[in-house]
Design a protein around this nucleic acid. Sequence first.
DNA 1: TGCATAGCTGCGTACCTGCGCAGGTATCGA
DNA 2: TCGATACCTGCGCAGGTACGCAGCTATGCA
Lengths: 116, 116
Amino acid sequence: MHLVPADRADRRSIDGHRVCEAIAAIGETGRLRTWADRFSLLADANRLALLVALHRTGPLAVSDLAIATGMNDPAVSQALRLLRAAGVVAGEKEGRVVRYRVVDEDVRGLLEHCVG
Amino acid sequence: MHLVPADRADRRSIDGHRVCEAIAAIGETGRLRTWADRFSLLADANRLALLVALHRTGPLAVSDLAIATGMNDPAVSQALRLLRAAGVVAGEKEGRVVRYRVVDEDVRGLLEHCVG
DNA sequence: TGCATAGCTGCGTACCTGCGCAGGTATCGA
DNA sequence: TCGATACCTGCGCAGGTACGCAGCTATGCA
C-alpha cells in the first residue's frame, strides 16, 4: 500500500505500514469534515440545551426555549437560525408562534447517545 | 411543577407546562457542559482525523500522525496536548518516540457511533 | 385602528481557536 | 562528542464565534 500522497512522500515515517493504515482509517476527509461540523453544532452548552429540550420535550416556541435555558430571546433566535441553516432543526409557524423541532436523524442519534 | 428559576419567573411563557418539561429535560447544566466540551474536542476536522486514526489503527507516533493527516508537526503536537489535557488521549514514551492512543471511553463511543 | 406580543435581524464587542514560525529539550547513532 | 531525529513550547496572526443591544416585521386582541 502506498497511500501517502506525493506531497508528503518524502517525510520519514516511524512505521510506514501503520501510516498507511491510519490514512485508510481516516478515509475521505469530506466525511470527517461533515461530522466535525455536526459536532461543532453541539459544542456549545446553550445550543446543546436547546437541542436536548427540543429532542426530549418535542416542539417548543422560541420564548419558551429562552425561559427554559435562561438565554436571551435574540440569542435563542440566532442559535436556532444556525441550527436551521445546518438542517438540524425546523420551525413551523402557527400564528405568531414558531415551534421548532429536531429533524436531523444523525443529531438525534448523537443526543440519544449522550443524554439518553 | 414550578421549575422556572425565580430570576426568570416573570417572563410570559407560551406553554408553561412544556417549559417545565424542557427544564426537566435539560437537567443539570454541568452535565451538558461536559458533553459540549467533549463535542468541542471533536469539532475540528484535523483533531477528528487524529482521533479516528488512533482509534482504528492503535498507538501511533506524532510524526506518523502528521504524515497521515497532512498536518505540520507542531500542529499535531498542540492538538494532542489539548486532547491529553482533556484526558482523551495518553502518550507513552518509547525512547524518543511517543505513541499516543485514545483512553476516554465516552469519546471512543462517539467515534464508533459516527465513523463505525 | 391601536397596542402588545413573538420572533427575526444587524451591528459591535469581547473572546476564543487553529496554525505557522522559530526555537528549545531529549534521545539515538556515528 | 557531534549531529540528526522526535517531540514539545512560546508567540503572534488571522479568522471565527457568541452574545447583548437596539430596532424591525408580523400577528392577534381589545
